[in-house]
Structures are given as structure tokens and as C-alpha cells.
Amino acid sequence: TGEEYIAVGDFTAQQVGDLTFKKGEILLAIEKKPDGWWIAKDAKGNEGLVPRTYLEPYS
């Protein structure tokens, strides 16, 4: 299990392996990579890379 984050903006996948999401979606951070791209999972179970700058902790 990971930590929940809320998307603060829309993001469209730029390449294969990225995860597209919309502002307000809750994402589960699976792995926090030091380069600023995290592996996350959305509510539908889709998994991919997301930019850290689009996420804020969800409580």
C-alpha cells in the first residue's frame, strides 16, 4: 500500500508508461523516485509514472 495524493492539475501521458489523470483524482503513490516522477495507481487500478509536482498529500 502507498500514500494517497490528490491531483492539483490535469496531466496527459507524454509517453508510454505515464499515467493520465485529472485534477481532483486521488492517486496512490507506489514508489517515490528521486527524479520527481513517481509510480502511482488510480482508482481504476491503472498504474504508471506521474510528475510529483501535480500531487499534494490527501488527508
Rank of each mutant, 00 (worst) to 15 (best):
T1C: 15
T1A: 13
T1S: 13
T1L: 13
G2Y: 15
G2N: 12
G2F: 14
E3F: 10
E3I: 11
E3N: 13
E3Y: 11
E3L: 11
E3A: 10
E4N: 10
E4V: 15
E4Q: 14
Y5S: 00
Y5A: 01
Y5P: 00
Y5Q: 01
I6T: 05
I6P: 00
A7I: 02
A7M: 02
A7T: 10
V8K: 11
V8I: 15
V8F: 04
V8R: 09
G9S: 15
G9K: 15
G9H: 15
G9Y: 15
D10A: 07
D10R: 02
D10V: 02
D10F: 03
D10Q: 04
D10G: 06
F11V: 05
F11H: 07
F11E: 00
T12S: 10
T12N: 11
T12F: 12
T12E: 11
T12W: 11
T12V: 12
A13S: 10
A13Y: 03
A13H: 03
A13C: 07
A13D: 03
Q14V: 12
Q14E: 10
Q14S: 11
Q14L: 13
Q15G: 12
Q15E: 11
Q15Y: 10
Q15F: 10
Q15R: 15
Q15N: 14
V16K: 13
V16I: 13
V16M: 11
V16P: 15
V16N: 10
G17L: 04
G17P: 03
D18N: 10
D18Q: 15
D18Y: 15
L19A: 00
L19G: 01
L19F: 03
L19W: 00
L19T: 01
T20D: 07
T20K: 04
T20P: 10
T20C: 07
F21E: 01
F21C: 05
F21K: 01
F21P: 01
F21D: 01
F21T: 02
K22W: 07
K22L: 09
K22Y: 10
K22M: 09
K23W: 06
K23T: 09
K23Y: 07
K23Q: 08
G24L: 03
G24E: 02
G24A: 03
G24Q: 02
E25L: 03
E25I: 03
I26L: 08
I26K: 07
I26V: 09
I26C: 07
I26F: 05
I26P: 02
I26N: 02
L27A: 00
L27P: 00
L27T: 00
L27G: 01
L28G: 03
L28R: 10
L28E: 08
L28S: 07
L28H: 09
L28T: 12
A29Y: 03
A29F: 07
A29H: 02
I30S: 04
I30H: 03
I30Q: 05
I30A: 02
I30D: 02
I30C: 06
E31Q: 11
E31A: 11
K32A: 07
K32M: 09
K33N: 13
P34N: 12
P34T: 12
P34D: 14
P34H: 11
P34W: 09
P34K: 11
D35C: 09
G36M: 05
W37I: 08
W37N: 07
W38Y: 06
W38V: 06
W38H: 01
I39Q: 07
I39W: 14
I39E: 04
I39H: 09
A40G: 04
A40P: 00
A40M: 15
A40D: 01
K41N: 03
K41F: 05
D42F: 00
D42K: 01
D42V: 02
D42Y: 00
A43G: 10
A43R: 12
A43F: 09
K44N: 14
K44F: 14
K44E: 11
K44V: 09
G45Y: 02
G45N: 06
G45W: 02
G45R: 02
N46G: 07
N46H: 09
N46S: 07
E47T: 15
E47W: 11
E47K: 12
G48S: 00
G48K: 00
G48L: 02
G48Y: 03
G48C: 04
G48V: 03
L49A: 10
L49W: 12
L49R: 15
L49D: 04
L49T: 13
V50R: 00
V50W: 00
V50D: 02
P51S: 07
P51Y: 11
P51M: 08
R52K: 13
R52F: 12
R52D: 11
T53N: 14
T53R: 13
T53Q: 14
T53A: 15
T53S: 15
Y54S: 09
Y54F: 13
Y54A: 10
Y54R: 08
L55Q: 00
L55K: 00
L55V: 05
L55D: 03
L55E: 03
E56G: 04
E56P: 02
E56H: 08
E56A: 10
E56S: 08
P57H: 08
P57L: 10
P57E: 10
P57I: 08
Y58W: 12
Y58G: 06
S59P: 14
S59I: 14
